[in-house]
C-alpha cells in the first residue's frame, strides 16, 4: 500500500532509510523543523538548516521516488532564548516560497512555560500573516495534557487561524477528543515507548473514526522507528479492517490536508511517467 509519513525528521536518518521507506510504499513525507539535540547558537545555524530542509533533503528523497515536503520554525525547546527565536521567525519568510515548504511547524510547547507560549504566539502571527498551514508539536508525557490544552487555547484565541489548516500532532487517548471536537486535524505518533503504539493508534481509530486523523513515525535521531506507519497498516489488517479505511488514514487524509498548502504539488505514483 502506498502511504505518506506526515512527520519524519529525515535529516537525522541515513539514505538507507529512504531506500527502505520507498520499498515499503512511502511515496511522500513531510519533515517539520525540530531540535537538533543541542541548542543552536545563531540565526545563521537555522538558515543553514532551512537550506538543508528545502534543498538537500528533497533531492536525496527524490533519488528513491519519495516526494519530500517541509515545515519551518524554531522548536519549542529553543524558545527560552526569546531573542534568537525572534531572529529566526523574522528570517523564515526568506524560505516560504521554496517549492517544498508546506507551512510553519512543528511549533508548540515543551515544558509549558511563559517564554514558550510567547514564541508560539509569534509563530501563529507569522503563519496568519503569510497564510501558512500549521503543524503543532504537543509536549511529552506528564506535560502533554496541560500543554495541549494551552495550545488549543492559543489557537482558538486567534480568529485568523483556520482550524482545518492546522494539524495537532502527537495526540494520545487523553488529548485526541478535544483536538477533533475543536475542528483541528490530529496526528498520532508511533513511538516505541513515550507516545502511541500501532495497537493504541488502531484503538483510537476504532473509537473516533478516521476523519481528520493521521499516523506518523516522527523518526528522528532518538529511539524511534521510521517504518512505524507500515506497522500500523499491518495492525489494522490483522484486525480485519478494509483496505479503503487504512488507505484513508495513511494516504487520503494526508493528501487532503497537505493539498490546502499553496506549495503542495504531489504526483500520485500511478501517474508518474505520464506527461
Amino acid at each position: 500500500m502506498y502511504y505518506f509519513d506526515p512527520h519524519i525528521h529525515m535529516v537525522s536518518r541515513t539514505t538507507d532509510d529512504y531506500e527502505t521507506l520507498a520499498k515499503m510504499g512511502c511515496v511522500a513525507m513531510s519533515e517539520p523543523a525540530f531540535w537538533a539535540g543541542f541548542d543552536r547558537g545563531s540565526v545563521e545555524s537555522f538558515r543553514d538548516y532551512f537550506r538543508q530542509l528545502t534543498d538537500f533533503e528533497p533531492r536525496r528523497a527524490a533519488q528513491y521516488g519519495v516526494q519530500h515536503y517541509t515545515w519551518l520554525c524554531i522548536n519549542a525547546k529553543e524558545a527560552e532564548n526569546v531573542s534568537l527565536s525572534r531572529e529566526v521567525i523574522a528570517m523564515i519568510p526568506e524560505f516560504l516560497d521554496k517549492p517544498n515548504v508546506l507551512g510553519i511547524g512543528e511549533i508548540g510547547l515543551n515544558k509549558n512555560t511563559r517564554n514558550e507560549s510567547r514564541v508560539f504566539l509569534e509563530h501563529l502571527d507569522l503563519a496568519a500573516r503569510f497564510r501558512q498551514q500549521i503543524l503543532i508539536h504537543t509536549p511529552h508525557l506528564e506535560d502533554k495534557y496541560q500543554g495541549t490544552r494551552m495550545i488549543l487555547d492559543m489557537l482558538i484565541g486567534d480568529s485568523r487561524i483556520e482550524r482545518s489548516r492546522v494539524l495537532v500532532d502527537h495526540v494520545e487517548e487523553h488529548t485526541v477528543r478535544t483536538v477533533l471536537e475543536e475542528g483541528f486535524w490530529a496526528g498520532m505518533t508511533l513511538y516505541p515507548v513515550t507516545k502511541c503504539t500501532p495497537q493504541r493508534a488502531a484503538d483510537i481509530i476504532e473509537t473516533y473514526g478516521p476523519e481528520r486523523l493521521m499516523v506518523n513515525s516522527a523518526g528522528d535521531w532518538g529511539p524511534s522507528k521510521p517504518t512505524a506507519v507500515p506497522d500500523f497498516i499491518l495492525e489494522m489488517r490483522r484486525r480485519g479492517h478494509p483496505e479503503s479505511l487504512i488507505r484513508k488514514i495513511v494516504y487520503d487524509n494526508p493528501l487532503e490536508f497537505f493539498s490546502q498548502s499553496a506549495s503542495f504539488r504531489f504526483t500520485a505514483p500511478e501517474l508518474r511517467g505520464h506527461s
Binding site: N112, R114, S117, R118, L121, L141, E142, D143, K144, Y145, Q146, R149, M150, D153, E172, E173, H174, R177, R200, D203
Partner: peptide
C-alpha cells in the same frame, strides 16, 4: 481506561494560565 490512566500521569490544566503568564 487508557484515557483515565493517561490523566493520572498528567499535570493538571488550569484554564486561567494566560492570566498567570500575563501574556
Amino acid at each position: 481506561r487508557a484515557e483515565r490512566v493517561q490523566l493520572i500521569f498528567s499535570r493538571p490544566y488550569a484554564p486561567q494560565w494566560r492570566d498567570e503568564f500575563a501574556l
